[in-house]
Computed example of a mutant assay.
Amino acid sequence: MAIDKVREYLKQWGIEGEIQEFNTSSATVELAAQALNVIPARIAKTLSFKHEDGCILIVTAGDARIDNGKYKKEFGLKAKMLTPEEVLEYTGYEIGGVCPFAIENDKVEVYTDISLKRFDQVYPACGSSNSAIGLSCDELYEYSGAYRWIDVCKDWDEELE
């Protein structure tokens, strides 16, 4: 199972036991926020886009949306999301459980969006549609192996805490 792969991956930081598994789905931002009893903006959603012969994963705040102009300026191409089949092929995770951890495909680049930085703790999925873990933004950045922080989102409230 994909969650087991994430659990094994997170062992290197000794936090594998902090993964939360729910009896209900956490496959969407709203469902994850309900399961965790947090505002939706604190959910760290992982979005996947086509990029040359690979893909780009961008971890954003739950209330953020990709700004096509910013994305094109950052990556030099139009934002085009992967199909569910491509997501599974590149990341090893199904939609609803996609996370930036334990990505074994060298054609995948992970980035973290600044929309997350307004929070002390955010909650990415852990490989299944009913899991999450609470991490600081610095931990998320480190554990995901992100290339860098980027600014490619819109519609998020900078003042929201």
Rank of each mutant, 00 (worst) to 15 (best):
S131F: 11
L140H: 06
I43G: 01
E109G: 05
E8G: 00
L135C: 06
C55H: 02
T46I: 13
G127M: 13
I39S: 13
P100L: 07
E74P: 03
L36N: 11
F75R: 01
T46G: 12
I3G: 02
P100T: 05
E16L: 04
V122A: 05
A35F: 01
L82N: 00
L116M: 13
A125F: 02
E52S: 10
I58Q: 00
V108Q: 08
E109Y: 14
K80P: 07
F22M: 03
P84F: 08
K154E: 15
D4N: 15
P100F: 05
K78G: 00
D67L: 13
L31M: 14
S115F: 10
K45Q: 08
L82R: 00
D53H: 12
L116Q: 06
L31P: 02
K45V: 11
G76M: 08
A32S: 14
E8V: 07
E18T: 05
V110A: 05
W13H: 12
S144G: 05
K78I: 10
L57N: 06
S129E: 11
G96C: 09
I3N: 05
Y111D: 03
G145V: 13
I66H: 11
P100M: 09
F22G: 00
G14I: 09
I56F: 12
A2W: 05
E159F: 03
E94S: 14
L88N: 02
K117F: 12
A64S: 13
I103T: 00
I103L: 11
I15P: 06
A102G: 11
T83H: 03
G62E: 02
T60E: 01
I114E: 13
E94Q: 09
F119S: 04
K80E: 15
I103A: 00
F22N: 00
S136H: 11
L47K: 06
I150T: 07
E158C: 08
S25E: 12
S26R: 06
I103Y: 00
S131N: 13
I15G: 09
I66W: 10
E104P: 04
S128W: 04
G14C: 12
N130S: 13
R65Q: 15
F75V: 02
G62T: 01
A61L: 07
N37Q: 15
D120K: 10
R42A: 07
E16F: 03
G145F: 11
I95K: 02
P40W: 12
E18D: 15
S115G: 10
A61R: 07
Y141P: 01
T60P: 12
W156F: 15
G127T: 09
K72P: 03
L116F: 06
A61P: 05
D138R: 15
D63G: 01
D53I: 09
G62C: 06
Y93V: 03
F101M: 09
P40E: 12
D157V: 07
A2G: 04
L140G: 09
I66F: 13
K50T: 07
